[in-house]
């Protein structure tokens, strides 16, 4: 298992590094990630949401539905833990 795991890990890592070869450089201000969707968040945040903190405005407004999903995840985790760990009343004596 250890050898197999090592081989799988090295192959996965090699594939991931192979993918980075074509990536834009670190800190490049003209990379697609920085120039396609996000400029609008920076320029329009005050007009659209009147919030100077751009992360907040994206989190709670532009992509607020993701945040609803995020809270759902936490709620699911809480309910799941209760469901998993709740014991039958009888077994408390043990």
């Amino acid at each position: 298992m250890k050898v197999l795991g090592f081989i799988v890990t090295v192959l996965t890592g090699a594939l991931l590094i192979y993918g980075t070869l074509d990536m834009p450089n670190y800190g490049d201000p003209d990379s697609p990630a920085s120039s396609h969707v996000s400029p609008r968040y920076i320029t329009d945040t005050e007009i659209d949401t009147a919030t100077p903190n751009i992360v907040t405005s994206v989190l709670a407004d532009y992509r607020g539905y993701d945040t609803l999903g995020e809270t759902t995840v936490i709620f699911t985790a809480g309910m799941s833990c209760i469901l998993i760990l709740r014991r039958r009343k009888k077994s408390y004596k043990v």
């Binding site: 990630a33 920085s34 969707v37 996000s38 968040y41 920076i42 751009i54 992360v55 994206v58 989190l59 992509r63 993701d66 945040t67 999903g69 995020e70």
Partner: peptide, 10 residues
């Protein structure tokens, strides 16, 4: 870029 920060908060 603020978007990756938002995604990673989630």
């Amino acid at each position: 870029n603020p978007l990756p920060h938002v995604l990673m908060l989630t």
